[in-house]
């Protein structure tokens, strides 16, 4: 589904990614963990062509994405739920979902409005509320629901648990697990490493722009160096 080879990204001299390779297979839910500034968001932004890569290959659903604009990548079914949710704050919940449908184009998807409302009933209750006035958890659900409306083949999530209470984090992760069980392919970026490893089958660890560990999530969760660096306390 996704194949990344030797990806380099720099910001004006700062090397944010220094040769990252990873792959995500159809139906998998894969975690990417790492500390602040490791380059996790940069990686997702490079995958959705929001930042330009310096070198490396990204093949999504059999096609190299180099040179495509971000909206074209989204329309092929690579949907990125960005860090900080980035909902359309001035528009209603329903309008946010409708804008989400633009990425679908002439493709079809099982993720209809009914499906999204079933997954996150609060979005139906708050249908006409201005999205900027939703709580953090509700905004995260909207950001995910909106991406689903676009018919994702691969869903990229950047720190969905950021700023959420444990209870709401549970709800969001349960929804993600359910989506994955129904067949959705997910790449999950998290600082909350424990939660991410519990929810996924395979994981990568990113440190200062390099993949330092990879393997089954359960194995990484038992690895002493990872426990010390990322699962401590």
């Amino acid at each position: 589904m996704l194949n990344v080879k030797d990806l380099h990204v720099s910001y004006k001299g700062i090397k944010a990614l220094r040769g990252v390779s990873l792959h995500v297979e159809e139906g998998e839910m894969v975690a990417l963990i790492g500390s602040n500034g490791a380059g996790k968001s940069t990686l997702l932004n490079a995958l959705s062509n929001m930042v330009r890569r310096k070198s490396g290959d990204i093949v999504f659903a059999g096609r190299e994405t180099r040179g495509q604009s971000a909206h074209t990548v989204a329309r092929q079914g690579l949907l990125h739920v960005p860090e900080g949710r980035q909902i359309l704050a001035d528009m209603s919940v329903y309008e946010n979902l409708l804008v989400g449908q633009i990425a679908l184009g002439s493709r079809t998807t099982r993720y209809t409005l009914e499906h999204v409302y079933e997954l996150f009933p609060v979005l139906e209750e708050r249908r006409d509320q201005i999205a900027g006035t939703l709580s953090g958890g509700q905004q995260q659900m909207l950001a995910i629901g909106r991406a689903l409306m676009g018919g994702p083949k691969l869903l990229l999530l950047d720190e969905p648990s950021l700023g959420l209470s444990p209870l709401i984090t549970d709800q969001v992760f349960n929804a993600l697990t359910k989506l994955n069980q129904e067949g959705l392919t997910v790449l999950l970026v998290e600082q909350n490493a424990l939660r991410a490893l519990e929810a996924t089958s395979r994981a990568y660890v990113l440190d200062r722009g390099l993949i330092t560990h990879e393997g089954p999530s359960a194995a990484l969760a038992g690895d002493q160096t990872i426990i010390d660096s990322y699962l401590g306390a």
Binding site: S48, M50, S69, A70, H71, A74, R75, L79, H80, P82, Q86, I87, L88, A89, D90, M91, E95, L98, V99, G100, I102, A103, L104, G105, R146, A147, G150
Partner: peptide, 22 residues
């Protein structure tokens, strides 16, 4: 739908692009 895309870009250009808005 065109108008919603206009407003989406006005509100948050990067988010709109990620949602497939040209």
């Amino acid at each position: 739908s065109f108008g919603r895309q206009v407003r989406a870009v006005a509100t948050n250009e990067r988010a709109a692009a990620l949602l497939g808005v040209n």
